[in-house]
């Protein structure tokens, strides 16, 4: 009922098979330097391992250094915050008053004002060349940016 298809042999393959000699002379293989090759490979492997270990050790050492630096930064920040609080406590008017009393100072009486008969520099009279105005920010030295 059905025809079986047989593969047709191509003429080209037939030609190659016909032209190829049955036997040919194979040149003698060059002697390989097995020992040298093994040494190179061992050296390469050792170098790679040593490099990886060295890099890892260096990275670990840097990690230790980084931790030390972070600890120093944290310690510095802690000390700075404490000093800010200490300075503020020392500047407290109540503490200064107590310290002054302990030193023997007495509270001043009510302030008195004098009306000067002629202007002094503090009253607006300018002597010499006035300095240029400097924009000052009294808050700047102690604010967040410098924490």
């Amino acid at each position: 009922m059905t025809a079986i298809l047989t593969p047709r042999r191509s003429p080209r393959s037939a030609t190659i098979r016909d032209d190829r000699p049955d036997l040919r002379v194979v040149p003698e293989p060059r002697p390989r330097h097995t020992l040298g090759y093994a040494l190179v490979m061992v050296l390469l492997l050792a170098g790679a391992v040593f490099g990886a270990v060295a890099l890892n050790a260096l990275a670990a050492a840097e990690a230790v250094a980084a931790r030390n630096l972070e600890r120093q930064v944290a310690e510095g920040e802690r000390e700075y915050a404490r000093l800010v609080a200490d300075v503020a406590a020392l500047e407290d008017p109540g503490r200064i008053r107590e310290a002054a009393l302990e030193l023997g100072l007495v509270p001043s009486g009510p302030a008195r004002h004098l009306q000067l008969e002629r202007n002094l520099p503090a009253d607006g009279a300018v002597v010499g060349t006035p300095l240029p105005e400097v924009t000052s920010d009294p808050l700047k030295p102690v604010l967040s940016a410098e924490r």
Binding site: R78, R82, V84, A85, A88, L139, K140, V142, L143, S144
Partner: peptide, 19 residues
């Protein structure tokens, strides 16, 4: 987080945080 400070009008510290 470090809690913000409280200053008076002249920048004197009224409240701050320490460790």
């Amino acid at each position: 987080a470090t809690r913000g400070r409280i200053y008076d009008r002249d920048g004197d510290v009224l409240a701050t945080s320490i460790e």
